[in-house]
């Protein structure tokens, strides 16, 4: 009976909200704009209807560096000749005007919302890991509990079930990179699922972030590649006419060297973006249907919220899986680049 009461209460509340929304003056609701605003970056971190000002760091075309608060640009204001472009190629970015009065994009190293979120993620990662390190230093043979235990189980699973079986003796050398990769992506993903301030930034769903991660893996793989790996690329064991005089196979292999990290980059980006996108679309549905009267809006609210919660729960799983996959593929690429000498 209680449960039924909750459900009726929720539905009536939703109808009420729907009614409120329906009675507001008709502002055309643009879901695309809203969604991309949520997924994208911004110069200040807006919470509710306020904005945390963050530093904007730009280099003008004259080579001069400027550092000022993002609050000075709020609401389309201009500061030192810089303003946030309302539309055009650089919509939403800081732009300036050069001597000819033409709009240009300065070098922009601003601490945007995503950058702050990155710092927060790094901090959270330290906050998760260093208590465990301290624990080990204090009680080397005791099993840690709670959060520390959870971290230890995860590290143990990744290290002993994946890195060591794959890399063998070299596990110790690559483990720090791979584990950092995994935990950093995991923390970024999970922080992205939180809706308000410390989280909520769409980090792993931003191609700049995944690009850096993929480049790191690319560098690690190719720097640690052995002679056999390079030989396989430039002189693979195929019939000679496939590699000379027209180097068909080497070109394909070389192409493969670059597609691997690109696939990594796109995979993580698309998965995390997709998760955020679905939730945002489901929530946007409420406001799209709000124009159709109370009952439709109420029903849509219930359905949307149920689906959104469901998607969020699946997203938690995806957060883990994507971090795991990224790390596992990085491990595999490293292993492939360091083939053991095969005995005949």
């Amino acid at each position: 009976m209680r449960f039924v009461g909750y459900v009726i209460g929720c539905i009536s509340l939703c109808c009420f909200v729907g009614q409120l929304r329906a009675q507001e003056p008709a502002v055309p609701f643009n879901p695309q704009e809203l969604i991309f605003e949520h997924l994208g970056d911004e110069y200040g971190w807006s919470i509710w209807n306020r904005s945390i000002p963050l530093p904007v760091i730009v280099r003008s075309d004259t080579g001069k560096w400027y550092l000022f608060s993002s609050a000075r640009l709020d609401g389309g204001k201009t500061f030192n000749g810089f303003y946030i472009a309302p539309d055009g190629d650089y919509a939403g970015k800081v732009v300036g005007r050069d001597g000819d009065g033409k709009e240009y994009r300065p070098w922009d190293l601003s601490m945007t919302k995503n950058v702050l979120a990155l710092f927060i993620c790094a901090f959270v990662l330290c906050w998760l890991l260093f208590p465990l390190v301290c624990w080990y230093k204090r009680k080397p043979y005791d099993a840690p509990r709670r959060m520390k235990g959870m971290i230890e189980v995860t590290v143990g699973m990744l290290y002993q079930e994946m890195i060591v079986p794959m890399l063998g003796k070299e596990a110790k050398r690559f483990a720090p990179y791979l584990l950092t990769l995994f935990f950093f992506i995991l923390v970024m993903n999970l922080m992205g699922l939180l809706v308000i301030f410390p989280g909520g930034a769409n980090l792993a769903g931003n191609i700049s972030i995944t690009l850096v991660l993929a480049v790191c893996t690319f560098v690690v793989v190719n720097v640690s590649g052995r002679k056999a790996y390079w030989k396989d690329i430039f002189w693979p064991e195929v019939p000679t006419w496939l590699k000379f005089p027209v180097p068909m196979m080497p070109v394909i292999e070389l192409f493969g060297v670059f597609t691997k990290p690109i696939a990594l980059m796109i995979r993580l980006f698309a998965n995390m973006l997709g998760g955020h996108l679905i939730t945002l679309v489901l929530i946007s549905l409420i406001f799209i249907f709000a124009a159709m009267g109370q009952v439709v809006a109420g029903a849509t609210t219930v359905i949307s919220v149920v689906f959104a919660v469901f998607m969020e729960i699946i997203d938690i799983l995806i957060c883990f899986i994507q971090a795991y996959v990224f790390m596992m593929l990085s491990t595999i690429f490293i292993v492939l680049a360091r083939p053991e000498k095969v005995k005949e």
Binding site: G205, S208, L211
Partner: peptide, 20 residues
Amino acid sequence: ALFKPEFGLVFWMLVVFLII
């Protein structure tokens, strides 16, 4: 905008990731 890597973010990400 989402599909274009942003220089500033790439720079900071690289810094943060390498430091961590």
